[in-house]
């Protein structure tokens, strides 16, 4: 009774939404409230674009949609408030377990470090830390897998698709030019 089939409400697929139809999950009410407040804020902002100026104003559709957001968010909040709380779940265990919080923080750190440190070092750090924590395998295995996959990703995006990720502290362009010169020299 206490244990709920995890496949049923872990929300792994969009097709089987994680919400429960007849119970309120921990934090759901707060989320619904935040959504309503955010919708109100956006509605106000949409009104600020052009007011009730004209049917064709750039603010017309934004106002209509944010109004729809406010209405639906209010209905959702009302419906959610009526549902009984699911007592078998807890916020820390089912919604925000430690690993999820940690990975969310990892991602934030990734975003912050990406520009100053550069793509290659940041990604290497991220992959090594993430795989080590999740996999709990030896350092050699962890670093090997991380570096290998990073090199593959880098080759595809940087060399084939010429996506210039922030170079940061790594002199990427000079390195590539160096190899280009080597190959050009070899060809001559």
């Amino acid at each position: 009774m206490q244990h709920i089939d995890p496949d049923h409400h872990d929300g792994t697929s969009d097709a089987t939404p994680g919400g429960e139809p007849d119970k309120r999950r921990p934090g759901e009410l707060v989320f619904a409230l935040v959504m309503l407040l955010a919708s109100l804020f956006l509605l106000n902002s949409a009104y600020g674009i052009a007011g009730f100026d004209a049917l064709s104003s750039p603010g017309a559709i934004p106002m209509a949609t944010t109004a729809a957001m406010v209405l639906s968010a209010a209905v959702i909040l009302w419906n959610t408030a009526k549902l009984p709380l699911d007592r078998t779940e807890s916020l820390i265990k089912d919604i925000l377990p430690l690993t999820v919080v940690m990975f969310a923080l990892f991602l934030v750190a990734f975003g912050v470090l990406l520009k100053p440190l550069g793509f290659l070092p940041t990604s290497a750090l991220f992959l090594i830390a993430a795989i080590k924590i999740l996999g709990k395998r030896s350092w050699l295995w962890t670093v090997g897998i991380a570096v290998f996959s990073l090199v593959v990703v880098w080759l595809i995006f940087r060399i084939v698709f010429t996506v210039l990720m922030p170079a940061g502290i790594v002199p990427e362009a000079e390195l590539i030019q160096f190899f280009r010169n080597v190959f050009a020299g070899g060809a001559q």
Partner: peptide, 14 residues
């Protein structure tokens, strides 16, 4: 999954 999840995240960022 310990390798797949970090890789999905990295690919998403790139």
């Amino acid at each position: 999954r310990s390798v797949l999840i970090p890789l999905i995240m990295l690919l998403s960022i790139v």
